[in-house]
Design a binder for these strands. Structure first.
Length: 438
RNA sequence: GUGGCCGUAGCUCAGUUGGUUAGAGCGCCAGGUUGUGGCCCUGGAGGUCGGGGGUUCAAGUCCCCUCGGUCACCCCA
């Protein structure tokens, strides 16, 4: 544990965290709203759960064996002596809420949340990153698996991503996994000397992790290792077959990856991962998830099967950049109010125009006419409303078309809002929005 | 947590073998037009050269430490 040293200079975002400011944040707004729309269309409602949870939730739920919990979790003791943790992932908290409140099933929820993992930061890997996800509890119907995977796949499609590759596997269940683990164990024992240095030591402790190892020695060994999919009992095999048939039926391309092992301990049966080959480097998983039929029980609740996924927003946006897609227009004001008579007119006009449904912007601080018009232009507003002494006197304003070549015109102040709504919003919007208190 | 590379204005970057007051483009502000934006021209503001220590007559340039970024490992979103 490093001795913390007092940083110098003004405070900055901690290592591995980052700010998202305008206009980049406009992409986040659009991204989240598209996901929300898709989730709602499929019957998922928003779930908001605390960023802080009891640390034991993750120890038990995510698992003592997972590195996410053992090496990467942000833990703290609060003033009341409670042992808490910043959520390292999104599933366990939703399952905890499900167990705590027992909503009717199937319980289908979507979320957007920060997730915290103490790792060495690099591109696409942060100590605080953000995930979009869904969880569906209370049914083990394989068609639910298909629905969940299809939701994610459709979302990638929505963003214009064309190169996202879906891998699927089945991890089996409590009944058939021991048989597989002993078969895998026997195989690894025979080939232990051929494994990479790290796994020569560790294969006994976590044999499944060897399957995930990317070093050539381990890859060579696991190429012919026993595959979980060959050890599924009848029910699990049928379940997995139905899932794959469902994906085929919906036209969702996918590839069986018998070595797909996910790093969180709770997974059973269906697991899946979306990777973007457009992303350089190792951080190319843009989403992943699976079924967790034992999780609710593990954390002390009723038996309740479930499935879900998480999508990393930062990585997803990197993938969009790499593919050159999802570049939504940054919202701009409809109208920019220029006032060289002291500011009261701008104050009042902005309020009025906004009430009528127009996005109105202005300058502050008594700037020159030239300066205000320059800002109007750079704001991207389609029109400028100019108020000078003469206009003020005559109860009129000048309207300038900033994007086209329509000549300037004078409009009576009293009818300005109506005129602009008609001009800029196509005539029908905003008419009901006027009135009401300030 | 291990190792490699990098850190100069808000942004993208120049800065010669260590050598006067550290530069450019973009952006920002103002002026060129006593009331008219974009294009153009002129000027201005803005830098503890990431931070600290050391070597030296002299450090943005060299050394050490540290912080941050980045890449690989690891892990995963």
């Amino acid at each position: 544990m490093a001795e913390p040293q007092e940083p110098s200079g003004p405070p900055r975002a901690p290592s591995g965290t980052h700010d998202v400011l305008w206009p980049e944040s406009a992409r986040w707004e659009e991204l989240v709203s598209r996901f929300a729309r898709r989730a709602q269309m499929a019957g998922y409602g928003l779930a908001l759960t605390p960023v802080l949870e009891e640390a034991r939730l993750f120890r038990r739920g995510v698992g003592e064996a997972s590195e996410v919990v053992t090496k990467e979790m942000y833990e703290l003791t609060d003033r009341g002596g409670r042992h808490l943790a910043l959520r390292p992932e999104g599933t366990a908290p939703v399952v905890r809420a499900f167990v705590q409140h027992r909503p009717s099933v199937p319980f289908k929820a979507w979320y957007v949340t920060p997730a915290f993992r103490y790792e060495r930061p690099q591109a696409g890997r942060y100590r605080q990153h953000h995930q979009l996800g869904v969880e569906a509890l209370g049914s083990d119907d394989p068609d639910l698996d298909v629905e969940v995977v299809a939701l994610a796949a459709g979302f990638y499609d929505d963003l214009g991503l064309r190169r996202v590759e879906l891998s699927v596997n089945s991890m089996g269940c409590e009944a058939d996994r021991p048989t597989y683990l002993s078969a895998l164990g026997r195989y690894l024992q025979e080939h232990a000397s051929e494994l990479c240095q790290e796994h020569q030591e560790r294969w006994v402790h976590s044999p499944l992790r060897v399957l995930d190892c990317k070093r050539p020695q381990c890859r060579a060994v696991t190429e012919d290792a026993p595959r979980m999919v060959d050890f599924l009992d009848e029910a699990c095999a049928a379940h997995f077959a139905r899932v794959r048939a469902g994906l085929d039926a919906l036209g969702i391309p996918h590839r069986l990856d018998p070595r797909l092992v996910r790093g969180l301990d709770y997974y059973t049966r269906t697991t899946f991962e979306f990777a973007s080959p457009a992303l350089e480097g190792a951080q190319n998983a843009v989403g992943g998830g699976g079924r967790y039929d034992g999780l609710a029980e593990v954390i002390g609740g009723p038996a309740a099967p479930g499935i879900g996924f998480g999508i990393g927003i930062e990585r997803l946006l990197l993938a969009c950049d790499a593919e050159g897609c999802f570049d939504p227009a940054v919202p701009t004001p409809d109208v920019f109010v220029v006032d060289v008579t002291g500011g009261q007119a701008a104050r009042d006009l902005c309020q009025e125009l906004r009430r009528c449904g127009l996005a109105a912007e202005r300058a502050f601080g008594g700037r020159s006419l030239k300066s205000q018009l320059r800002r109007a232009d750079r704001s991207g507003a389609r029109a400028a409303v100019v108020v000078g002494p003469a206009e003020l006197q005559a109860h009129r304003v000048q309207v300038k078309d900033l994007r086209g070549d329509r000549p300037d015109r004078e409009v009576a102040r009293a009818v300005l809002a109506v005129e602009l709504v008609s001009d800029l919003l196509g005539g029908d919007a905003g008419t009901g929005a006027a009135g009401g208190g300030p």
